[in-house]
């Protein structure tokens, strides 16, 4: 890395309506992880198990927004992170979860919890602990301002590494030479 920042950058990550595949792909940067931890430290992330996000330089969000808790986490990230990145297809355009968008929510939930073959006395879960689902799954840029986008399902380890190193070095990140994929 050409220009190293003066202090370690604080980075938070979270998965909203995603499958954690993007986080797995993040781990696919393999030995670059050692380089990375020389220049960053993790705040809230599945890697640290820190539950609340604090002030950070970079926030990375996997997954779209499908429920009220997603909205809350996303807003907390936006409030705390100077730079917020959408990581992966679901964060970028809603991805697979958004394919429920043309089905009314009631139909969707009833189909799963009430009318599925083999269910007896099924009912739509209403435990207060459960976040309420939104009528539609939204890409995260429709809920808060997003600074950068890394498409892909998932984005490859090299794509994530290229993007982050560009960003940390102060170059406008670009994904070229086959690193850009929507699938």
């Amino acid at each position: 890395m050409s220009t190293l920042p003066a202090r370690k950058l604080r980075v938070a990550t979270a998965s909203l309506a995603g499958c954690f595949g993007c986080h797995m792909s993040f781990l696919d940067i393999d030995e670059h992880l050692f380089e990375l931890v020389d220049i960053i430290e993790f705040d809230r992330s599945p890697l640290t198990d820190i539950k609340e996000v604090g002030p950070c330089d970079i926030g990375i969000i996997e997954g779209g927004v499908c429920n009220s808790e997603n909205v809350h986490v996303l807003r907390e990230f936006r409030r705390n992170c100077k730079t917020l990145i959408a990581l992966g297809a679901c964060a970028v355009n809603g991805g697979l979860p958004a394919q429920r968008n043309h089905i009314p929510l009631a139909e969707c939930l009833r189909e799963v919890y009430q009318f599925r073959p083999g269910l007896e006395n099924g009912q739509i879960p209403n435990d207060p602990e459960l976040p309420l689902p939104l009528d539609k799954v939204r890409p995260i840029h429709e809920v808060v301002r997003i600074d950068y986008f890394i498409p892909g399902c998932p984005p490859s380890g090299p794509a994530i590494w290229k993007f982050l190193t560009d960003l940390i070095a102060g170059r406008t990140p670009r994904l070229t030479g086959g690193l850009l994929h929507y699938d």
Partner: peptide
């Protein structure tokens, strides 16, 4: 930045389906 849609309204259907009014872990 502001979203174009109203979060409350987007939760209305789920509230009705679950007979809940609160938004735990919500906003």
């Amino acid at each position: 930045f502001e979203p174009a849609f109203d979060l409350d309204a987007a939760l209305a259907e789920a509230r009705q389906l679950t007979a809940r009014t609160s938004t735990p872990g919500g906003t």
